[in-house]
């Protein structure tokens, strides 16, 4: 039974953040990324931290879930930290044998690690609070001005939406075919990598065949319901920018301005 799968990271609760327009959330996330990159200064990071904590509290997504996004990155994080720590030149702080730890190295290490952490957290804040379908709607509309340059915004969104629709169906089918082949003595678990890859053939071939059949059926069903591309289409889901969206944008701009001001007026070395 695969009824209980949730797609992507989406955490389905209701909150002011969840209710924001997906387009605005995409823009806010982009601005946040810009903010994280221009921040030169530890006091700026404190500001970003405060903002992130406030936003995540407002989103009703538990802290634990939020941190989950960092888990796959833990090795990269440690690696980044150590690389910067050991291989920077500058004023020596202390040394352990031949390894010299410099003031600049430590600063750099903390700087890059924090940057990475905040990048991940701010994007997960978006994916956790926006359903994949809303996200694809938002992207479609944001990119629709690019249609003049023949950018297939509608087509991409439609593809994404159909993919989302068929993931549960195909997962169910995979499970069924796997069991059917097991009933014929297939073994998906044992053997070396090559043997296991070979064992996947009886699973993948039927899955491909059925996906093509489904695609053919679906194309016909869509055509018979008058689908002829994105031209002259109206939408049931209408995205609407509300007061809250403008408020969120205002706060974000304020944050960026503060980061810039801190960069200018707080000397680099003040904290750390």
């Amino acid at each position: 039974m695969l009824n209980n799968i949730t797609l992507g990271q989406y955490y389905p609760v209701d909150s002011p953040i969840h209710r924001l327009d997906p387009r605005m959330k995409i823009i806010l996330t982009l601005l946040m990324i810009v903010g994280v990159f221009i921040c030169q200064n530890f006091s700026g990071y404190i500001l970003i931290l405060l903002f992130t904590v406030a936003a995540s509290r407002l989103s009703h997504v538990p802290f634990k879930v939020m941190m989950k996004g960092l888990k796959p990155l833990r090795f990269i994080l440690v690696f980044t930290f150590l690389l910067n720590l050991f291989f920077s030149t500058g004023t020596e702080l202390f040394h352990v044998g031949p390894v010299v730890i410099t003031r600049e190295g430590l600063r750099q290490a903390i700087h890059y690690s924090l940057r990475l952490v905040f990048l991940v957290i701010s994007t997960s804040l978006m994916t956790l609070t926006t359903s994949p379908i809303a996200l694809s709607d938002g992207l479609e509309q944001l990119f629709s001005p690019l249609k003049v340059f023949h950018f297939p915004a509608h087509e991409l969104a439609m593809m994404m939406s159909i993919a989302l629709r068929f993931i549960p169906t195909l997962m169910e089918e995979t499970d069924k075919i796997m069991k059917a082949q097991k009933a014929r003595g297939a073994d998906f678990e044992s053997g070396n990598l090559l043997a296991r890859a070979k064992a996947m053939v009886p699973l993948l071939v039927p899955l491909f065949v059925s996906s093509f059949r489904r695609a053919g059926d679906l194309a016909m069903a869509m055509e018979s319901r008058c689908y002829h591309g994105g031209e002259h289409r109206t939408r049931l889901r209408v995205l609407k920018i509300t007061g809250n969206d403008w408020l969120a944008l205002g706060i974000m701009i304020l944050l960026l301005v503060l980061i810039v001001l801190l960069n200018i007026f707080v000397p680099k070395g003040l904290i750390l």
């Binding site: 089918e173 075919i177 059917a180 009933a183 009886p202």
Partner: peptide, 27 residues
């Protein structure tokens, strides 16, 4: 599983080989 053979619903969706002979020989 050799002794208790199980034929699923719509079993034709599990065929995968190039020939009928190879597919039947899989088990």
């Amino acid at each position: 599983r050799q002794k208790v053979g199980l034929v699923f619903q719509y079993p034709e969706y599990q065929l995968f080989e190039e020939t009928v002979e190879k597919d039947i020989a899989f088990g």
